[in-house]
Design a protein around this nucleic acid. Structure first.
Length: 291
DNA sequence: GGCATTTGACCTAT
DNA sequence: ATAGGTCAAATGCC
């Protein structure tokens, strides 16, 4: 990844782009160490595919960040109803890299209600803008986002579209489900599982897109960022106890990940957010380099 | 018994 | 009046 574009960049922007580029290279290197070659063993284990997808999304996020630095005005101009996919963002980054002229891009951000903003202020939480893994952005809510808003960190909610709505690295507790008018599928409501213990205000809603089948895609709307600390799970404890070899593959004994279970998983909920997110956290904690 | 989920009731915004 | 979001009692699972 190289710095491109016609307009000269501020000095600190060049430094940031340089750092992001270096991070990108490090992630690529880490991926090659942690994961088997593409199309190999990873295709047999969905969990490894998930890890690979996350690496891809991290890399994509870096590219998008560079693109935004190179073209800040076009990236932050909200209010356009069109929807851009993650691949489009990636392509934008590639165009920036090659120095080609690119069409104007917009970021789509939804806002939480005013009452929620008050809640954040009372709790002392400091909402910050968070890009969501390069997923698809939806049109904004009632109010257009301005650069000033983003700089102030006044964006409290954001929306993504994904095929794995539960895999986001956090533990959630379902607190409601609602049938939405003119929608084929109900919307489910989740709070951060640390809501009681740590007062974390993060919530999310998940709704399957109408007409989406095999694979189903879901609209996931997040409200507020997590203020909670990660919870150490049983599985990370297991990884600590067996980390003598320090291999990611050690996390899947007997060549299967089915041994990863949530304490209270129901048979009908094999893809529960708790178990999946625990696994992601554990993977982050136990990746080690071989001597 | 403890905890998570379900689901109808209630509240708020439009 | 209606839709969307949240609450909380009931229910089920471990």
């Amino acid at each position: 990844m190289e710095v491109g574009g016609s307009a000269p960049l501020p000095c600190h922007h060049e430094m940031v782009v340089g750092e992001i580029t270096r991070s990108c290279q490090l992630v690529e290197k880490l991926r090659s160490i942690v994961l088997p070659p593409r199309g190999g063993e990873a295709s047999r284990w969905p969990e490894l595919q998930l890890v690979g997808d996350l690496f891809d999304e991290v890399l994509q996020s870096y590219r998008v960040s560079v693109s935004m630095l190179l073209h800040p005005c076009s990236c932050l101009n909200a209010g356009e109803p069109a929807v851009h996919t993650g691949s489009e963002w990636s392509r934008a980054a590639d165009e920036a890299k090659s120095g080609e002229e690119r069409p104007e891009r917009t970021r789509k951000i939804n806002y939480a209600t005013d009452s929620r903003k008050e809640l954040v202020q009372k709790s002392g939480a400091t909402p910050t803008l968070m890009h969501s893994n390069g997923h698809q952005w939806l049109k904004p809510g009632k109010r257009n986002t301005t650069n000033v808003d983003i700089a102030r960190g006044e964006t409290n909610s954001w929306t993504t579209i994904t095929e794995a709505p539960h895999f986001d690295g956090h533990q959630w507790r379902k607190y409601g489900e609602k049938h939405i008018s003119k929608s084929q599928f109900p919307k489910t409501y989740y709070k951060c599982s640390s809501f009681k213990e740590q007062g974390c205000l993060a919530t999310k809603t998940i709704q399957q897109k109408d007409g989406s089948h095999d694979p189903a895609s879901y609209v996931v709307k997040y409200n507020f960022h997590h203020t909670c600390k990660p919870i150490k799970s049983n599985y990370s404890q297991h990884a600590e106890n067996t980390s003598q070899q320090g291999s990611l593959l050690d996390l899947f004994p007997n060549n299967t990940a089915s041994t990863i279970t949530s304490p209270r998983r129901k048979p009908s909920d094999q893809c529960s957010s708790s178990s999946a997110s625990s696994m992601l956290i554990d993977l982050n904690l136990t990746i080690q380099f071989r001597g």
